[in-house]
Structures are given as structure tokens and as C-alpha cells.
Write a protein that binds this DNA or RNA. Structure first.
Lengths: 152, 152
DNA sequence: TTACCAAATGGAAATCATTTCTGTTTAGAG
DNA sequence: CTCTAAACAGAAATGATTTCCATTTGGTAA
């Protein structure tokens, strides 16, 4: 938690109860959450929690590098805790489709500047979904892996 | 054009003036378009063109493999012409940030099943942005490349 | 500690994208 | 040429996201 608050302060933002509550929630949940998920989870805890404030704060926490926005085909808005340390550069995340654990991918196979299909790469979006070690072990029969592969 | 209509027929859809107009537009524009872009471009041409119909058709054309939905960080809805031939399997696209030309990436560096950071990869989203050959040649001074790199 | 002010908050309301619904038209098979 | 499922237009509903504004608060400096 403290490392996250540090990121907040470092970017000149205030540490408020709301923000602590949101970070706390993500620490508990592990997985990715939509703004609506956040509202439901926090309603009742600290009185009401309006969606506008949640949108604002999710965006701010993302700017600070505390959260990141998960990339999905449908474009749904979902956030998760960023695994990169303070000041770390370009990276992606990999999410476990079973337990939603998030891993950091700091050495992406794609590097800006490299050639791909006749194009010189300038930027790239990568979102990986997989099975973390423990979940893979749990379901290491092929049929399970097959099924999981469907979900995308 | 004919190859695209073939994809429509192959999936049991009708070939209508609307759909031809949309495909025609994407053939002209080369780049990616939002539903709103499509409406603006087609308004006046063939009388009115309601947004609901555009949403429906963009989705249908995507299902048929004629279009694909571009992946963006913000989740904005944008579509472009898919470069894959009929029946081709898993692939991604690379978009030229200068001329918006789209290329097909059929052999992605990430393969489902491979290990990444201790996770077994099950699925992945990849969207590449770069400079196509001719645009790279045009602006092959480093400063231009530098600038372009900012835009993401 | 206290005062201060920019930043953060809550919540209503506005906005904007997207979907649903309904009645009408049309592509294309037979 | 007829017929039917699919496609169509457009109005309206829905739902997510943003804007606005009056109020409160975190955290710095006196």
C-alpha cells in the first residue's frame, strides 16, 4: 500500500480516504474491476461513493502508474493494479484467466524500432492472458487448457 | 470488392447497397473509421444513413471477417478493412501511423501455449502501429521518426 | 497548531455512444 | 414473379461517461 501512496505523492496528488479505499480494494480483489464493480464494492463501506468520483479517481490513479487500464477487444473499461515499480518504463501485463493474478511483462517480444511485415514498429499495444503457474498446475489436464483457451 | 462480397455471402448474409457502400468507403479511406466517421462520410450519398444501422452493419461485417475492430488504449470503437483472406486463421494487424495503411501480421511473435513470465499463454491481443515502407522512406530522418513515436 | 488554498468531493444534470423496438422494405431463393 | 427471412429507417430507451458547481479537505507554510 505504502508504495502506491508514494506514487500518488510523487505525482503531486493528494492522499485521500477515497483513493486509499480504491487502492485497498484492488489489493484485496487482485483481479481487474470496472468502475461499476468499484462502486458496488465500496458502497456502504465509506458511505456513498458516486460514479463520477470513481471515474475521476481511476483515471488519476492510472496516470500515477498505480493502476493500468486492461485492454479488451470490446473496449470495456477495466482497471487493475500495475505491477511495475516506481519509475519503471515501458511494460505490459499478463493476466491469469483463472485467478486474475496480474504479472508484469517487462521484456516484450516486440520492440519499437524493429521491422514487422515491412513496417517499422513505432508503438504497440499488447495484452496477454494466460494461466499462472499455480492455476496451470491445478488444471494441467489438456481438456481444461483447451476449454480455457476458448474464453480469450 | 468482390472478395469482400464473397465473405458476406459465405456467411449467409445478404449483399445490400448499404453494405456495399460501407465496404466501398473503407476501400477508399484505407484508414480506420468510427461509426460516426462512417455516418458523416455516407450522409448525402445514399440518402440518410442511421447510426443504428451503421453499428449493426459494422458488427456484421466484422463477424464476416471483412472488417476488424482496431484495438486502442482508450477503448474507442474503430474499424478497418481486414487484410486476411477468406478462411485465414489467427492474425493481427499493423497500421501505418502516417498513411493509415493496414498490414497483416500472420506470424505473431507470441504464440498461445508458450511461457511468458511464468504464465502459460492462452490468448493475446496485439495491435501494432508503425511506418510502412513508403512512409518510412519519405520521413527517414530521425527527428521525424522521433516525433511519430510520440503519438502512439 | 492554525490558516489557507488548490485539489478533491458529492451528486445532480447533461451529454454522448450504443441498443432496442417497431413497422416497412428488400434481397435473393424457389 | 412470389414469398420470407433478413435488412432497413428512425424514434425512443438505455447506459456509460462527463460536466458542473457548491462544499469540503489534505497538506503546506506561517
Amino acid at each position: 500500500m505504502e508504495e502506491h501512496l508514494e506514487k500518488l505523492r510523487a505525482s503531486g496528488r493528494k492522499v485521500t480516504p477515497r483513493r486509499k479505499a480504491i487502492i485497498q480494494l484492488f489489493l484485496q480483489e487482485q483481479g481487474d474491476l470496472s468502475p461499476q464493480d468499484v462502486q458496488e464494492a465500496l458502497s456502504g463501506t465509506t458511505g456513498q461513493f458516486g460514479l463520477p468520483g470513481i471515474y475521476r479517481n481511476l483515471e488519476i490513479l492510472t496516470t500515477c502508474g498505480i493502476l493500468f487500464r486492461v485492454v479488451t477487444y470490446g473496449g470495456e473499461r477495466r482497471y487493475a493494479l500495475c505491477k511495475a515499480g516506481h519509475g519503471e518504463g515501458h511494460h505490459h501485463h499478463i493476466v491469469c484467466i483463472a485467478c486474475r493474478k496480474v504479472g508484469k511483462v517487462s521484456d516484450c517480444l516486440y520492440k519499437d524500432g524493429m521491422m514487422v511485415e515491412g513496417f517499422r514498429l513505432v508503438s504497440h499495444i499488447v495484452q496477454l492472458n494466460g494461466l499462472c503457474e499455480s492455476c496451470a498446475r491445478e488444471k494441467n489436464d489438456l481438456s481444461a487448457l483447451q476449454e480455457l483457451r476458448q474464453q480469450g
